[in-house]
Design a protein around this nucleic acid. Structure first.
Lengths: 188, 188, 188, 188
DNA sequence: GATGAATGAGGTTTCATTCAT
DNA sequence: TATGAATGAAACCTCATTCAT
C-alpha cells in the first residue's frame, strides 16, 4: 500500500488536497483532488488507503511543516521573550505564506477525522516549542492555569492576527510585531 | 385554516441541526437532522428552502443568541473594563453552556455557505458590543491596528479559554476570570 | 367530491393547468397549478380526485371547446368543400388563438393518462365533424383507406400550418387558406 | 489502461431510454433506464453528464438514424417525385420499424430540453433532404409559403399515416404508397 | 368547503472505493 | 503500478396526496 513508488505523486496529491479542501471543505471529492494532482482517481488510493488516511496524513504533514520551520534556527539559549518571538513569528509567517494550508489545518482540527495516533506522531517535533511554552506557563500570569493554556493562547492570538492579514491588510510585518507585543503584554 | 407552521418545529429542526453538525460537520445529512427533530424528511424543506438556507438561518440564530445575552443588562455607564468583562463573560458563558452551538458557529464561520446578507442581518444586535470594542481599540495598546482587531483578539482569547473548558477542566469560573485578566493585561 | 361549489374555481384550475403544462410538460406540479389558479394546494383535490383526473378533465374540456366552435354555425347543407373548410378554419383558428391549449392537447394525446372513457365522452360532439370526414373518406382519393384517415390527415396538415403560425409568421389568414387549399388538392 | 468506455454500453443506455420514455414519457426515471440497460444507476452518468444531456444525445441519435437511411441510396438525379418518394418512404419506414423511437422523437421535439445546439448538429445530414424540400417548396402549389412548410407538411402527413400503421393496420405497404399519393396530389 | 403543513416515496446526482485492463 | 469505468449507497430535494384546523 504505502509503497510510495513516487514521492512526487504523493506530494502532488497532498498539495492538490490542500487547494480543493480550502475551496470546498473536507467534503472535497477525491476525484477532484486526483484530477488536480494530475493522477488517476484510482491512483490516489494506492498512496492512501482511504480518504480518512489521506486527511490524517495531510494533517500531520501540515503540522510538521510548521514545526520544522520553528525548529530551524531555534535560539535555544536566548531569553524567553526571544524564544517566544521565534515561535510566534515563524509559525505566523507560515500561515501568511500558505493561507490555504492554514485553513485546511483548522478544518482538520475541528473535524473528527484526525485520530489521536496522528496527533501523537507530532510529539517529537513539538518538543522544542512545548518546552518554551511550559516555561512561559510557569510564570506568574499563567501560573495555576492548565498545561497547554499558553500554547492555546498563543495560537489563538495568532488566529486573530492572521484574520486581518488574510483580509489583505497591508502592514503585515508590523501586524506580526504588534500582535506579539500584545501577547507578550498579557503573559510576560 | 390549515395547521400553522409551528415555531416549535422550526426550533426543533435548528436544534437537531446543531447536534448533527457538531457530530458530523456541515456534511450532516438533512435526513438525519429531520429524524432527530422528529419530523419527516420533506418537512424540513417547508421550513427552510434548502440546506444552505437552513445553515444560514442557523448561523444567524446562534449569533443572535449570543448577542441577546450580551445586550441583556449591559452596563452602559460602567467603566470600560467592566463593560469588557460583561461582553467577555456573557459570551464565554454561552460557549460553556452550549459547546455544540459554539462548534457549529465556528464551522459555519469557516465555510463558504454563510452569505454576506446573513452577516449583515446581525449588524443591529452587534452594535452595543462593537461600540465597546471600538473604544477599546482606540486606546494605546491597540492604536493604529485595524478596526475589528480588538474584537478578533477577544474572540480568539476566548477560544483558547473555551478549549480548556470544553476539555472538561473543573475550575470554569476561575478560568473565565483568569482568561479575562490575561486579555485585559494585553489591552488595558 | 365533484360537488363543484364554485365553477369559477374549477375553471381557474383548468386554465392554470394549461399555462403550467404548456411551460413545463405534464410533469407540471399540482402545487404550481393551484398557486396560479389562486387556490390552496389542497383545494385542487376537492375539484379533481387526483392529478390524472384533472388531466383527463382538461383533455375533454379542450376538445369540447374545439368541437363547440366547430358545431356552431355548421353549414349542414353546403357543399362538402364548404363544410370541410368550416371544420378546417374553425379548429385551426382555435389553435391560433390558444397556442398553449393546443400544445397541452398534443401532450395529453401523446401521453398514456387519457383514458378511453375520456375519449368516449367526446363522441357526441364529434358527430358533426365525423360525418363530414366520413363523406370525405368515401370519395375517390381516400377510398379504401382506414376510417379516420381523413380526420388524421386534416389534423396533421393543420399541425404543419400551425407550426408556422406559432413561429410568428405574419400572413395568418393567408396561411389558413393556403393550407386548406393544399389539403383540398389532396383529397378532393 | 483501465477499461475503456464501451460504445455498446452507451448504445444500451440509449436504447433502454427509448423503451422507458416511450412507456412513461420524458419523466422516465434514470434508474429505470439504467436497470433496463443492465448497468448501475451511477454508470449512466459516466456516459451522460446528466439527464438533459442524455435526452439531447438521444434526440440527435434518433434523427441521425433517419437521415442516414434517407441519405443512403438517395437518387440524386431522379425526378423530383422520385426523390420525394425516397424521402417519404425511407423515413416513414423507419417510423414503422421503430414506433417507440418515433414516439420518443416526437416527445423530445415538443419538450424544451432539446437545445438549439443539438438541432444544429443535424444540419449537415439534413442537407440532402432539405434541398429536395426546397425544390418542392418553390413549385406552384407551395410558392409564397414560408420556407420549411414543405418539410413540415410532409412530416405531418407522415404522422397521419403512421398513426394508422401504429394502430396495427395491415396494409402497411399500401398505406405508405397511398399516403404519398395524397401528399403528392397536394404539392405536385 | 378551504387551507396549507405534513408526509415519505421516489427522483436525480455525487462520490468513495473497487477492479478489470 | 497506474488507470478510469463501474458501482450502489446515500445525499439533497420534489411532489402528489392527506388531513388537522
Amino acid at each position: 500500500m504505502a509503497r510510495l513508488r513516487s514521492p512526487e505523486k504523493r506530494r502532488a496529491i497532498l498539495e492538490a488536497a490542500v487547494v480543493e479542501i480550502a475551496d470546498a471543505g473536507l467534503g472535497a471529492a477525491t476525484a477532484k483532488i486526483a484530477a488536480r494532482a494530475g493522477v488517476a482517481e484510482g491512483t490516489l488510493f494506492t498512496y492512501f488507503a482511504n480518504k480518512d488516511e489521506l486527511l490524517n496524513e495531510l494533517y500531520v504533514e501540515l503540522k510538521l511543516e510548521v514545526y520544522e520551520r520553528l525548529n530551524t534556527a531555534f535560539p535555544h539559549s536566548a531569553s524567553l521573550e526571544r524564544r517566544a518571538w521565534h515561535v510566534w513569528s515563524s509559525s505566523l509567517n507560515w500561515s501568511i505564506e500558505f493561507p490555504q494550508k492554514r485553513k485546511v489545518s483548522l478544518l482538520l482540527n475541528l473535524s473528527a477525522v484526525v485520530t489521536p495516533e496522528s496527533r501523537a506522531r507530532l510529539a517529537e517535533q513539538r518538543s522544542v516549542m512545548d518546552a518554551m511554552l511550559a516555561e512561559l506557563g510557569s510564570r506568574e500570569p499563567l501560573r495555576g492555569l492548565p498545561a497547554g493554556y499558553a500554547a492555546s493562547l498563543m495560537a489563538s492570538v495568532q488566529e486573530a492576527t492572521m484574520d486581518f492579514i488574510a483580509k489583505g491588510v497591508r502592514q503585515r510585518k508590523a501586524l506580526v510585531e504588534r500582535g506579539f507585543a500584545l501577547f507578550w503584554r498579557a503573559v510576560r
